[in-house]
Amino acid sequence: CEICHEVFKSKNVRVLKCGHKYHKGCFKQWLKGQSACPACQ
């Protein structure tokens, strides 16, 4: 996960249209302050 830098250990992964992958919880937190993929912006 590019947000928390932890390895994906479960199926709790969100894959965006751009192809980047994040933990669902991390991405949900990210969206509270941002509106785009962290890696693409």
Rank of each mutant, 00 (worst) to 15 (best):
K11A: 07
C26Y: 02
R14G: 05
R14Q: 04
K28N: 15
K24F: 13
C40G: 03
P38L: 08
C1L: 02
H5T: 15
K32T: 11
K9L: 02
C37D: 03
V13P: 08
Q41R: 15
E6N: 14
I3P: 01
K11D: 08
C37A: 03
S35Y: 06
F8E: 06
K21M: 12
V15W: 07
C18N: 04
W30V: 13
G25E: 14
S35T: 12
I3A: 00
K9V: 01
C40P: 03
G19Y: 04
Q34L: 07
F27M: 09
W30R: 09
K24T: 14
K28A: 15
Q41A: 13
N12Q: 13
C37W: 01
K32D: 10
F8G: 08
L16I: 13
A39W: 04
Q34H: 11
K17Q: 12
K28Y: 10
F8P: 05
C26F: 01
Y22A: 15
Y22T: 15
S10L: 06
K21S: 13
V7P: 07
G25N: 15
E6K: 15
K11P: 06
H23A: 02
C1Q: 15
K17R: 08
Q29F: 04
C26W: 01
C37I: 01
L16M: 10
K17Y: 02
K24G: 14
I3S: 05
R14W: 05
V7G: 13
Q29Y: 05
C26T: 00
E6T: 15
V15T: 08
C26G: 00
N12E: 10
H5Y: 15
L31I: 11
K21E: 13
V15N: 05
K32H: 11
S10W: 03
K11L: 10
H20K: 01
V15C: 07
L31A: 14
K17D: 15
K11F: 12
R14A: 06
K32Y: 05
C37Q: 02
Q41M: 14
C4E: 02
W30Q: 10
K11V: 06
V7F: 02
K32N: 11
V7C: 07
H5I: 08
S10R: 05
Q29S: 11
N12F: 10
C4H: 01
F27L: 14
V7T: 10
K9C: 03
K28E: 15
G33H: 14
K24Q: 15
L16Q: 12
Q29D: 14
Q41W: 09
C26K: 00
N12G: 06
C18Q: 00
N12W: 03
A36L: 10
H20Q: 00
F8I: 13
F8H: 03
L31W: 09
C26I: 00
L31C: 09
L31Y: 07
V7W: 05
V15P: 10
K11R: 03
Q34N: 15
G33A: 14
E6P: 01
C37T: 03
C18M: 00
G25W: 03
E6H: 03
H20C: 09
A36H: 12
G19C: 04
E2H: 10
V15R: 09
K32M: 12
Q29W: 04
C37Y: 00
L16W: 05
F27R: 10
P38D: 04
L16K: 06
F8Y: 05
C1V: 02
G19K: 07
F8S: 04
C26N: 00
E2L: 07
L31T: 12
G33P: 06
S35I: 08
V7Y: 04
G25A: 09
H23K: 02
G25S: 12
K24L: 10
C40Y: 01
K32W: 04
H5M: 09
A39T: 12
K17L: 06
C40A: 03
C1E: 03
H20R: 01
G33R: 08
C1K: 03
G25P: 15
K21P: 08
K32E: 14
A36F: 04
F27C: 06
S35E: 14
C18F: 00
S35M: 14
K28R: 12
R14S: 13
C4V: 00
H23M: 03
K17F: 05
R14N: 14
S10F: 03
C18H: 01
C40Q: 02
E6D: 11
Q29M: 05
C4A: 00
Y22F: 13
C4Q: 00
G33Y: 04
K28C: 07
E2M: 05
K9W: 01
L31V: 13
W30F: 12
C26P: 00
A39G: 13
C40V: 02
K32A: 11
V15G: 07
G25D: 14
N12C: 05
V7N: 07
Y22Q: 05
P38A: 10
A36M: 08
Y22H: 05
A39P: 09
L16A: 15
K11Q: 12
Q29G: 11
G19M: 04
N12T: 12
F8N: 05
S35C: 10
Q34F: 04
F27S: 11
G25R: 14
C18V: 00
V7M: 14
C40K: 07
Y22G: 12
C18W: 00
K17T: 12
W30L: 11
H23T: 02
W30C: 10
Q34K: 13
N12P: 09
K17A: 14
A39M: 09
S35F: 07
C1S: 00
E6W: 05
H20G: 00
K9F: 07
K28F: 09
Y22N: 05
K32G: 10
K32C: 09
Q29K: 14
C37K: 02
F27K: 12
S10K: 11
K28V: 04
K21T: 13
H5L: 14
E2A: 07
E2R: 06
F27A: 13
S35D: 13
C18T: 00
H23Q: 02
K21V: 11
K24V: 12
C40H: 03
S10Y: 04
N12M: 09
V7D: 15
N12Y: 04
H23R: 01
C4D: 02
H20V: 00
F27Q: 11
A39N: 08
E6A: 15
C4P: 00
A39Q: 12
E2T: 15
H20N: 01
K21N: 10
G25K: 07
Y22C: 15
E6L: 08
K21L: 09
C18A: 01
S35R: 09
C1I: 02
C37F: 02
K24R: 13
A39I: 04
G19E: 05
C26M: 01
S10C: 07
V7H: 15
R14H: 12
C40D: 02
E2I: 08
G19P: 01
A36W: 07
G19T: 04
Q41N: 11
E2Y: 11
K17W: 05
F8Q: 03
Q29L: 09
E2Q: 10
V7A: 11
E2D: 12
P38M: 11
Q34P: 11
A39L: 06
N12A: 06
H5S: 14
K17N: 07
L31F: 09
K9D: 04
C18K: 01
L31P: 10
Q34I: 06
K17E: 12
G25H: 13
A39R: 08
K17G: 13
H5A: 13
C4R: 00
H5P: 03
W30D: 11
N12H: 12
L16C: 10
E6F: 02
F27W: 15
S10I: 03
P38V: 10
K28G: 14
G33N: 08
V15L: 11
K24A: 13
C1A: 00
K32L: 08
Q34W: 06
K21D: 04
K9H: 03
G25Q: 06
C37P: 03
K11M: 05
A36S: 08
R14Y: 06
E2F: 05
V7I: 09
R14T: 13
S10Q: 04
K24W: 07
A39S: 12
C37V: 02
F27T: 12
I3L: 05
K9S: 06
G19S: 05
S35Q: 12
S10D: 15
P38F: 06
H5W: 04
P38W: 06
F8K: 06
L31E: 11
A36C: 10
C4M: 00
A36E: 14
S10M: 07
P38E: 06
Q29E: 12
V7R: 14
C18D: 02
Q29C: 09
E6Y: 06
K24N: 04
